[in-house]
Write a protein that binds this DNA or RNA. Structure first.
Lengths: 254, 254
DNA sequence: TCTTATTTGTTCGTATGTATT
DNA sequence: GAATACATACGAACAAATAAG
């Protein structure tokens, strides 16, 4: 590959491979040729190939398994609806299934999630939001979510101990309509929501579960649910691989 | 720097420099030592320093000018409120200033924006959303926005020619309350909004204006505004440096 | 304007480490 | 254990942009 343009070789090579993937030359789930071979094929050093692949990894186009090879991403982009997913009517319409399952069903993917419930002392920022003494425990619900058995989402929900302890909010299966329906039954119906969306690099544990390279980005969403009276009843920290999701918000003016 | 942990040196070094920046050792706007010097200081090769800096660039922590040096980012993280910014009462409260100015004023930053209006044939996707014949022109309003004279946002708004042509929607200054107030006056009040948020690499022109490295990410937001009758009256494509912004959505349940 | 020094960008070759098969 | 394949690191060289004279 001659140096004909100001665009560096590793970037040109990344463009080439990306195009080849989109053309179907390397279909989803298949492996790219080894870096040595790509180097020979395009007449560059392996270091240059490595750097090109680094770009594609960052975009989420491929995933690398050391010792095995470089695999083309299988899953399509998923869509998360930030507002509709809270609506009680929709929540209860499909009973125990929940918003996440509905999101994946739209794309004919199988959804699966694992829930872990615990009583823990939360980080200081969370305690402050919940209006709780530093050092006091809260109920946490941790969810790990999969689409077609590929990890696609991590979420930790923090609930005030005073509200959640000893209730069905501590069951792994929180029942029809999910935790918002349970909160409503307990007299703490969530009436106001806020979500803040940031982009950052994944923490090591997040990268491990979501099978992310250190260069990939995640959406870090913090959702805060409050009652009509303004009491915060849930803080939910959600982590999504950024290349894997589209966030959607819909509302009516007023 | 000995290889004592499985964490690679370039990553450790990035952590070190990031910490030094946060500690105030390298204040906003100042320059890091040259890569040679950092290499000598930490006992690694320049290639390793370069790779460490690459991480910090990706995070938006520093900005590099070839031939000059590496500069620590000046601006704080900005917050964009996706829903409140459309509310008519707030829009008109501070007259011609607008949501963007308000967002920056909260952080004591000066806001400035340049507007360019044109009649153009839009991309096919936009035409389809607006329900317009392919090849037919629309009115575009392009905005380039700055905070403290640093570029922080790009937006292109597409308006149906039939609605906007010959109206004040084609003035660079769209007047108090902005284009939504003008649309309402014309009988096309926006009643429903949707925003979809994606993360991607910047296009070359976006990277040029926003002064982004090729490895940095942008938020690509597409906002669609419709009337109560369901007619799409505006499509707005917004591009934000991902490291520079926090997106915020707030709503009440219903 | 031209020249030179500085600083980062890119690429190569080589070597070694580590995970997988 | 051996072969394969990616990860990391070094040293060196040249290119390109910037700044200073």
């Amino acid at each position: 590959m001659p140096v004909e343009s100001p665009r560096p070789q590793y970037r040109q090579l990344a463009d080439l491979i990306r195009a080849a993937i989109e053309q179907g030359e390397y279909p989803p789930g298949s492996e790219l040729p080894a870096e040595d071979q790509l180097a020979g094929l395009h007449g560059v050093s392996r270091a240059t190939v490595n750097r090109a692949v680094l770009i594609l990894r960052g975009e989420g186009a491929v995933r690398v398994v050391r010792g095995r090879g470089t695999v083309v991403r299988e899953l399509p982009v998923l869509r998360r609806d930030g507002i509709t997913r809270q609506r009680a009517d929709l929540r209860e319409a499909d009973a125990a299934r929940g918003a996440f399952q509905a999101e994946l069903a739209r794309l004919s993917l199988t959804a699966r999630s694992e829930v872990g419930v615990a009583e823990q002392v939360p980080p200081a920022g969370i305690a402050s939001l919940l209006g709780i003494e530093p050092g006091a425990p809260v109920v946490t619900r941790q969810r790990r979510m999969y689409g077609n058995n590929v990890p696609v989402q991590l979420a930790v929900s923090y609930l005030p101990h005073e509200i959640a302890a000893g209730t069905r909010l501590m069951d792994a299966d929180s029942g029809p309509g999910g935790i918002y329906s349970r909160l409503a039954e307990l007299g703490y119906a969530a009436a106001a929501f806020s979500e803040s969306v940031r982009i950052r690099l994944p923490e090591t544990d997040e990268a491990a579960f979501l099978v992310l390279d250190a260069e990939q980005r995640v959406f870090a969403i913090r959702r805060i649910a409050s009652t009509a009276a303004g009491r915060v009843v849930e803080v939910n920290d959600i982590v999504l691989p950024a290349h894997q999701w589209e966030l959607r918000y819909e509302w009516r003016s007023g």
